[in-house]
Design a protein around this nucleic acid. Sequence first.
DNA 1: CGAATAGTGTCTGTAAGACACTATTCC
DNA 2: GGAATAGTGTCTTACAGACACTATTCG
Lengths: 258, 258
Amino acid sequence: MPDALDPTLDEQTFLRGYDPAAYPQVAVAVDIALLTIRAGQLQVLLVERGAHPFQGSWALPGGFVRPDEDSDAAAARVLTTETGLTADDFHLEQLKTYSDPDRDPRMRVFSVGYVAFAPDVPDPVAGPEAANARFLAVADLGLSLTDVEDELAVALAFDHGRIITDAVERARAKLEYTTLATSFLTAPFTLGDLRRIYEAVWGRTVHPGNFHRKALAADGFVEPTDQRGAASTGRGRPAQLYRPGPATVITPPLTRPE
Amino acid sequence: MPDALDPTLDEQTFLRGYDPAAYPQVAVAVDIALLTIRAGQLQVLLVERGAHPFQGSWALPGGFVRPDEDSDAAAARVLTTETGLTADDFHLEQLKTYSDPDRDPRMRVFSVGYVAFAPDVPDPVAGPEAANARFLAVADLGLSLTDVEDELAVALAFDHGRIITDAVERARAKLEYTTLATSFLTAPFTLGDLRRIYEAVWGRTVHPGNFHRKALAADGFVEPTDQRGAASTGRGRPAQLYRPGPATVITPPLTRPE
DNA sequence: CGAATAGTGTCTGTAAGACACTATTCC
DNA sequence: GGAATAGTGTCTTACAGACACTATTCG
């Protein structure tokens, strides 16, 4: 193997002789930010680390990519193992890859970050790796996602704070032009339920009347069922119940206020 | 190390004992789709592979991530080495990571895909790795990016066709709401030049009059210089010359036709 | 002059957001 | 009735896209 620091070796010769097998060992992991709405808040599934490094800190569920699977499959496997959900219960998509050489003190670990969206889960299930697993409100993590600076920050392991920030921004953007919001709900739901998803993810109030009209105007976003249900809070006029429609993008988009 | 296929080992015990250092060797590479506009066409920089696998096929410039750099730095290094450009000459951003276990027949290689945007480069510079490097029109690669099916497909190595497809889609989307288009130009430029960038990337004609008004209405997109230049084709009224403004996003967005 | 490109004026349809109002339930 | 939620009507402003027109150059 050529020595990268040998000054007598020119760039061209170095590159030709470059052999990845001669590199220090690297690993590729996945980390998943599973977002859900609980108690009107956007929450993320975190596991408490039982081992060093970052023992006692909260971390995203994750694991190494195995030889026979791609990173999508690894993320789905980790999530089903960790939560007991099946792949049909959540929507999963790749965010980006985090590659700081020092992000894991043990060795070089590249992490492919994922974001997943799920309806309110019965209750967090502690997976095999985790001493403890729970949903925590994203607003309580001190991630400067909101206009006001938060104070009660939680100690997050590795660069998982950044992954969660990126996941939330992805969710906020995709609510505008896709039908993603229905992934946070189980059918049937009311348009009030749907509006509260938008409010929780965006951290903004949304005008009920205008939202109602725009959600119905977006073709294939929601389909009426033949039922009416109690108003979401128990008071008020019972609302029409809907289920997700066949569309995946919504036109015109539901734009974020401001 | 636990044996992943040992049926007597339960999942929990397996995961606890899981040691990434005992995995088969994996490598992490970057591959960069450098897009530019030449002769009114969207083109991508490709290098002809001199070695197996895919000898003689065209591939994106790429290379392995070194121990002391993150993937962004690796992509910038590969691009400057391969083209002679400096980091200020192009805009670089991460696309996504490609992780099919069989994407490279030699060993397990994860590839972090990048897209870069550059103004028309003096001429492609063959890098140390490449027997031959050149820009090829994206429309000639047979990637089903256009409405009509293309025929003259070029043999692309690995999964680089997919990376190029993703890069083009990223470029198309970002032209709508960012000032990315100016990355394809060198100052000073006319609004006609800018419009032709949009037309080449989108593969659609854009109404000259409306484009003119909308580009000027987007605050900070372009700034007038105190010069006028010849009309882009040499005929017609000389146009006002502009340079890029300070904005990075444009409001209201320049939406794609259809 | 005609051809070509630059740039402006103006109209129409659509949509966002604000506001007000009606409808239906529980207490 | 009052409070609360569901749902509709309507007004104003903004903008996209179409079209027509003027402005300035070359040959």
